[in-house]
């Protein structure tokens, strides 16, 4: 079970002078139960790509399979498959419209046909998830919130759908560091506890290095790399050519290696790197 994209191409404003090929023959797999990170330079087509996951954009060519169902068709099965995928857009604040935050978050579950009790439960769950106090904020207008709070309310609106595949387009951009940390940890907990598949678009390679099981690097509408973080971060030249940075840890390890320390520079998480450095120092008898 997975989301599979097969040879997807998509052109914006086709047949006009402003024509732009945003996705060029993209094939990739989002395995179920894993955290997949998508990275790429600005304009590389990340946001365009994820809009194909739940059929918001129809590819010019190619097919999208969600749990082996082609979502491009008009059947009920396709509709159900599309609903398995919840997409939180980049800057989702603009989707707020209801009188109160609770009503706004309830919009999704209501559309899904949940019972009033179920809706109530989901609203509470989603607000707790994004750290918005239910008693304090439920009856407030979403337009009285600060930018960061609006962002959280909007993400809660997607979480209330309880999707099997949760797609997050730069969910933490523009949040304060502690809010960022909190949300990321919370998404990881969701992944651990409920087994939700998470697709995370991020510019932050350190985040990607510490959370992702799989990394997809996009460059100019093409998939450049698609593998485990370890394998992907090995292709340093390709990553730099795509306009991205290496994770900090990777940079430090590389520096140490070029300074003559005999260690394996493939690790990309903090813990592994620390162990590796200690090991290397010990081997050289310096520690």
């Amino acid at each position: 079970m997975s989301i599979q994209l097969k040879n997807i191409s998509y052109t914006y404003m086709a047949k006009t002078p402003y024509e732009h090929l945003a996705l060029d023959d993209v094939s990739l797999t989002i395995p179920e139960g894993k955290i997949t990170a998508i990275a790429g330079h600005t304009g590389s087509g990340k946001s365009t790509l994820i809009q194909h996951f739940n059929g918001l954009l129809k590819p010019d060519s190619g097919t999208v399979l969600v749990d082996d169902v082609d979502i491009g068709t008009k059947s009920t099965a396709a509709k159900q498959a599309r609903r398995k995928v919840g997409v939180a857009f980049q800057y989702p604040e603009y989707q707020l419209f209801e009188e109160t935050i609770a009503l706004d978050i309830a919009f999704g579950p209501k559309n899904m046909g949940c019972t009033p009790e179920e809706i109530q439960d989901r609203v509470k769950y989603a607000m707790e998830f994004v750290n918005l106090d239910y008693d304090k904020y439920a009856e407030r207008s979403p337009f009285q919130l600060s930018g960061g709070q609006k962002r959280r309310a909007a993400i809660a609106g997607i979480l209330a759908l309880k999707p099997k595949y949760l797609v997050l387009d730069e969910p933490t951009a523009g949040l304060d560091p502690s809010g960022r940390q909190y949300l990321m940890e919370r998404f990881m907990r969701l992944h651990r506890e409920e087994g939700t598949t998470i697709v995370l678009i991020s510019h932050n390679m350190d985040n990607i290095a510490s959370y992702a099981d799989n990394v997809v690097i996009l460059s100019k509408g093409k998939v450049l790399l698609q593998d485990t973080p370890e394998e992907v971060f090995r292709n340093e030249e390709a990553i730099k050519a795509a306009g991205l940075d290496l994770p900090e840890i990777k940079v430090i390890l590389n520096e140490l290696v070029s300074a003559g320390l005999d260690i394996d520079n493939r690790s990309y998480t903090m813990n592994k790197a620390v162990a590796e450095i200690l090991e290397g120092l010990r081997r050289q008898g310096r520690c």
Binding site: G86, V87, P92, Y94, Q95, M112, G157, I158
Partner: peptide, 12 residues
């Protein structure tokens, strides 16, 4: 953008 955002919350 807004239409897409609401569609992904299941509005028809």
């Amino acid at each position: 953008k807004i239409i897409k955002a609401q569609q992904s919350r299941g509005s028809d």
